[in-house]
Structure formats: C-alpha cells, structure tokens
Design a protein around this nucleic acid. Sequence first.
DNA 1: GTCATTTAATGACTACGGTCATAATAGGTT
DNA 2: AACCTATTATGACCGTAGTCATTAAATGAC
Lengths: 196, 196
Amino acid sequence: MLREARKKELKEKIFLQALQLFRDKGFEQVTVQEITATCGIGKGTFFNYFAKKEDILLYLGESQIELLQQSMEKHRNIDQPKKQILHVLDDLLHHFSSHSELMKLASMEIIKSASLAGKESKSVQQLHRQLASMINSAKQDGKLHSRWETDIIATAIVGVYFHTILSWTLLEAQYSTINESFRRQFDVVWEGIDHS
Amino acid sequence: MLREARKKELKEKIFLQALQLFRDKGFEQVTVQEITATCGIGKGTFFNYFAKKEDILLYLGESQIELLQQSMEKHRNIDQPKKQILHVLDDLLHHFSSHSELMKLASMEIIKSASLAGKESKSVQQLHRQLASMINSAKQDGKLHSRWETDIIATAIVGVYFHTILSWTLLEAQYSTINESFRRQFDVVWEGIDHS
DNA sequence: GTCATTTAATGACTACGGTCATAATAGGTT
DNA sequence: AACCTATTATGACCGTAGTCATTAAATGAC
C-alpha cells in the first residue's frame, strides 16, 4: 500500500529534521512549530507521528537497533564469544561517542520512559535479545560453558553496558577512557559468566 | 538575620507541601498553582525559591545528605571499613525503598541535571566526599591497605551504588532483591580495592 | 519617626506542548 | 465518474511552566 510508505517517509523526514535542529540549537531550544515548519507541514501533524516531543529521542534510541544488527553481522565469524560481544558493544559505544550530546539525552529519555512505564524500552529489549542470541549460539557451539541461564548473563552484560553509558553522561569523559573502563568492568563480569 | 530564617522556613514549607501533593497525586498531576495555593502564597513566589518545578526533586535528593550524615554518625565506630561503608549505603538504600516512587523521579532528575550541566549534582558530590572521608580515615588507621587513590575508590563505589539505584528504577524489584544484588556487586568491587 | 535601599511577593503575561473537532485526501466500490 | 469510508492534515484552542515589571515589605541610616 502506498499509504504506508508515505507515512514512514514523512515520519523519517520529521525525525531527521528534528535531529538536525536539536544538534544545531539544543533539544529545549527547538519548538515543535519549528520542526514542522522546516518540514513544511502543520504543527498538529507532528503529533500524529510522535506522541510527545521527547519521543523523537526514544526513536533515536530505537534506530540504534539497525546499527546493532549491522555490527553483529560484521562480527558474526569471531570465534570467542567474549571477543565477539566486546566488539559489538564497542561498536555501539563508539557510535554513541560520535553523537554524544544527543545520545545522552536519548539515554535519559529511554531510562525515564522505562522507569515510568515500569518496563524496559524497545531498544533495551532488543539489545538484551541480541546478546541472548549470541550467547545461546556460543553455548550450542560449545564455545561457552556457563552455569548461568542465558537471560541472566544477558541481563548482567546489559547492566554493565548501561552503567558505562550512564557514567559517561555524568563524567563527560573521553571515548578512550570510557571504553577502557567498560572493558575492565566487562572482564570482571565475564569472569563470573564463563566457566570453561 | 531574621530574613534568612524566614526564607529557609518558607522554602521548607513549599518543599514539604509539594512533596505531599506529589505523593498524593503524582508529580505531573500537580501544578505549581496548586502548590502555592496550598502554601497560601502567590504563584510567582514559588519561582523565587525553586527555579523549576523539577527542582523540588533535586532538593529532595540533596536532603538525603542529612540522612547520609546521620548514618555515618551511627556507624562511626565500626571497625572494618568494608562493613562500615556497607552499613551506610544500606541505610541509604533502605530509605530509598520506603519512598521509592518519588525517589525514582528524584534520581532521574539528579542524573538528568547532572548530564545537562556536565557536572555532578550536589548530592552525588556529597556521597563521594563522605565515602572518601571514610576511606581516608580507614587508610590512616591502618584498617585499609590499597594501592588505589582514595578518589578512585570512592568513584568506583558511587558507581556501583548508582547502578543499583538505576536497576531498581528499571526493574521494579523488591528491596531485598536489590539489596542482595548490591552486596554482591560491592563484594566484587571491594575485592579489587582492598589489598590487606 | 522618616526616608532610602535592598529584598521578597505577586499575578498578568508569554510561549510552548499537547488536544481535538473539522477539513482534506486517498482508496476502494459500483 | 460518482460516491462512500477510512485515514491523515491542520490550526484554533487549552492548560501550565516559567518570566517580569510592579508592588509591598523589611532593614538600616539619620
């Protein structure tokens, strides 16, 4: 149906224009009026695509899922599960670092909406799911021996990852610092996971 | 000066009335009008004391500092630094648990404002400082031997603590679960800290 | 007590996020 | 084409956070 294609196209347009404006002027300084004017549509139309202004940031978080999948594809043939997961998460961290200001805001919104809704956001769920799938494969291929259930392992890793992101937003550190800190934390956690 | 006393008194009144209303109806459902009406003052007066409605939540976070100091006093004479710190942080967690809804919101605001301001909030700074002071005392008394600088140790512990808080807001878990998880994480970190 | 000055209180006003009833339009049906 | 229905666009409108010029009050000097 053409309808669907148009809808998605317009949503993408609103999303991209909004991001550009946010980058230029900062989230708070951009009004919904401004976004819609830039897109050549009426103000009300915005809210047909995003329930709240903040939802642009949630969508940004969700759009990282694509990146995640690309990265998993890229590192599909790495043998050691630890290395594989580390590479994937490092890709995410790296991307995060190159758009840090907006990504920080997006993280806040993801956490906030998750804590208000009492359930995890789409993007966190996805990360969890993809990690679980990597871990399961590794288990089945005999590359990982652990007494923990896959879900528990995935949760632990997501926890470390988010802790890293959070520290970053708080400490305003460089990518190299954060990455280093992440690796150290990951080492500790992995030691508890892998009983090979 | 009487001026100062009155000011503080009114700020406290606004703060307490606002908290009560937030608890009754939820943060979003309470208007500034309502808060000021309950206090018998004009709407504009609110903003002489708190720059934003959200700042009530930040103030709530800061008010935990008192609790922190009380707790440190209470456990001042515990010999082992590990036990001492664990007791203090457990007190904080426990208090957090008994006002969890508001404290979750407050945590979000603390993190948010910290990430926007690019620096840590008062409450986080205080926690860091007090931990550092405990650690330093322990070092000087020969009760703790570590190759790490005091600040690094304090940062690591604050990190674990905040990770715990964050997990809590995301997972909607019970106090006992969270507390258990915190102890485990703390054990791991402490192992890296203490080289006695 | 009176005047001057600093500080706090106030509510009309502004700007923006979000709603909603209505208008426009696309797709399908005959 | 003519009509009907479901979907999308729209901007007037509403409620509220936050501003600000003005008023009121407190403090201090003489």
